[in-house]
Amino acid sequence: MKAVSIALAATLACVATAGQASSVAYNSAPADTWFYGNGNDYSPANTAVLTTDDNDQLYLRWHKTFEVAPASDGNVYSFTLGTEPMSFDWGIDNNGGASITALLTIRNLGTAQTVSYDPFFVGNDNESANGSVQNSARLSFAFLSGVGFNPNVDDTYRLTLDVDGLAGGPQSLSIDAKLGAGVPEPATWAMMIGGFGFVGGALRSRRRATPRLA
């Protein structure tokens, strides 16, 4: 009986996991295309698109305002210093029609400043069609000033869209905007610090080994 219970629990766990499965395609396009505003259906779309087993979608992209989004390297969009204004576009394709909640978070990786907001309650200009809702925002907007955007500083800004209530369960999608050299990843910082330590140690050893002249 115990073995049957364990097997049943494992089966249910597998079913739950499968129901929440998703995949992400980069430099892609949302199923319902970009339709928010006039002239924003840029081609190529160069969008990060998360698709669930239930064919719901979350999608995001970074770009210079009024210009085509560059192709990303994985989830990283790269820009030259001085790129301004900077915009991000977001969209949710809720094919199941369930009642959902969402949160958009922008994090400055260089300063750890973070701004979060509910995209459904900021302004009233979201556009909807075929079960999708879309909009965009600029990092220069006043309500995003807390993230400390400076186009002339090497930095990376991480955009995350979290959605709850979809048929496949909670989903999350993140993309980065890297300005200039961006912010080194933690592993890179560790290598740099280790390198500095090695050089310092070598210099100390050299000083100790240098003979004094009489």
Rank of each mutant, 00 (worst) to 15 (best):
A7K: 13
N135D: 14
N124C: 02
A71W: 06
A25S: 14
A10C: 11
V122A: 04
T11V: 10
Q20C: 13
Y157H: 06
A177C: 10
N130Q: 12
A112E: 14
D154W: 04
G148N: 10
G146V: 09
T52H: 01
G91L: 01
D176G: 07
V24Q: 09
N46W: 11
F88K: 02
D176H: 08
R138T: 08
L8Q: 09
F143L: 09
A10I: 12
G74W: 11
L166I: 05
A45R: 09
A112C: 00
A13L: 15
G194Y: 12
V49N: 04
S72N: 02
A102H: 05
L179H: 05
A98Q: 14
S23K: 12
N95P: 00
G131M: 10
I100N: 06
C14H: 04
P211A: 13
P30Q: 08
R61T: 09
N38L: 11
G39L: 05
D93L: 15
V199H: 00
T47K: 00
W189F: 15
S140E: 14
T11C: 14
P85V: 08
V68C: 02
F79D: 02
D118E: 08
D54Y: 07
L213M: 09
S174Q: 09
R204N: 01
F149I: 08
G96H: 01
T156F: 07
G180I: 09
G146L: 10
E67C: 00
V163N: 04
V15T: 06
G182W: 09
V133S: 05
I175A: 03
S72D: 04
S136K: 05
V153S: 07
V133T: 15
N75K: 14
D53L: 14
G19P: 00
S99V: 13
L81E: 06
Y42W: 15
H63M: 05
S43R: 08
Y77C: 05
Q171M: 11
A209V: 01
A13R: 03
A137H: 10
D125L: 07
F66V: 08
N27Q: 00
T111L: 10
T33Y: 12
L139K: 07
L8I: 14
G146W: 10
L50E: 15
L213G: 11
A190F: 09
N46H: 12
M192W: 11
S116D: 06
I175E: 07
P184N: 07
D41Q: 12
R204I: 00
N46F: 08
L103P: 01
M86N: 04
G169D: 05
R204G: 00
A31R: 13
S132P: 02
S116R: 12
G110Q: 13
L58R: 08
D53A: 10
W34G: 02
D118P: 12
L203Q: 01
Y157P: 04
D125N: 15
F66W: 13
A214Y: 10
S78Q: 13
A71Q: 15
V199L: 00
P211Q: 05
Q113T: 06
D41C: 02
S136V: 01
A25D: 11
F35S: 03
L161I: 11
N152K: 04
N126V: 08
A129D: 13
V115Y: 11
S72E: 03
T47W: 06
G169P: 04
I175S: 05
V49A: 03
A98V: 01
D73K: 12
F196I: 11
A102R: 08
A190G: 04
A69V: 05
